[in-house]
């Protein structure tokens, strides 16, 4: 049984709005009384994914769903895709521009943070098509 299923679009390049979707998802989790430790892990995973959509992708969406057992976050974008997933998943590896590095992004920790905080993490990416990430978190 799925209690909630929502989709939020995320625009590429919009640094001021970056984080808004994560904030909305967090509010919903709190309203539903999800335990604080789960809220925290989902928030970290969602925020990292949202920032990546803004700074690395051509735009995409975040799907949020809750069942009694788990929370699932799916993140799909419209490109450009990641050529080497193994490299991308390595701590410290980043192609972030100087502009976003000056803002404190580009540590190359976002994808590792997502993987560490989720109970299940899958990532698929095709150059020229896009990236598709699913994270699930046991409640």
């Amino acid at each position: 049984m799925t209690m909630i299923k929502e989709t939020y679009p995320v625009k590429a390049g919009d640094m001021t709005a970056a984080g808004d979707v994560s904030a909305r998802i967090k509010r919903q989790m709190k309203q539903l009384g999800i335990p604080a430790s789960v809220v925290r892990r989902v928030s970290v995973g969602t925020y990292e994914a949202e920032i990546n959509l803004v700074i690395h992708s051509e735009g995409g969406r975040i799907d949020f769903s809750i069942s009694p057992e788990k929370i699932t976050i799916r993140v799909v974008d419209q490109g450009p895709g990641i050529p080497d997933l193994k490299k991308a998943m390595t701590e410290g590896w980043s192609t972030a521009t100087n502009e976003v590095r000056n803002m404190g992004f580009g540590a190359g920790m976002g994808l590792p943070n997502m993987k560490r905080n989720a109970d299940e993490f899958t990532i698929e990416s095709t150059v020229g098509v896009g990236t598709d990430i699913t994270m699930s978190f046991n409640i």
């Binding site: 640094m15 604080a36 925290r40 970290v44 925020y47 990292e48 920032i51 803002m103 404190g104 992004f105 580009g106 540590a107 190359g108 920790m109 976002g110 590792p112 943070n113 560490r116």
Partner: peptide, 21 residues
């Protein structure tokens, strides 16, 4: 570095940073 802070951050933490955006 924001991702480091995301990784370490806990509720009720005091965060010292020169980033202000």
């Amino acid at each position: 570095l924001l991702s480091h802070v995301m990784g370490k951050g806990q509720a009720d933490m005091a965060w010292i940073t020169v980033q202000a955006h």
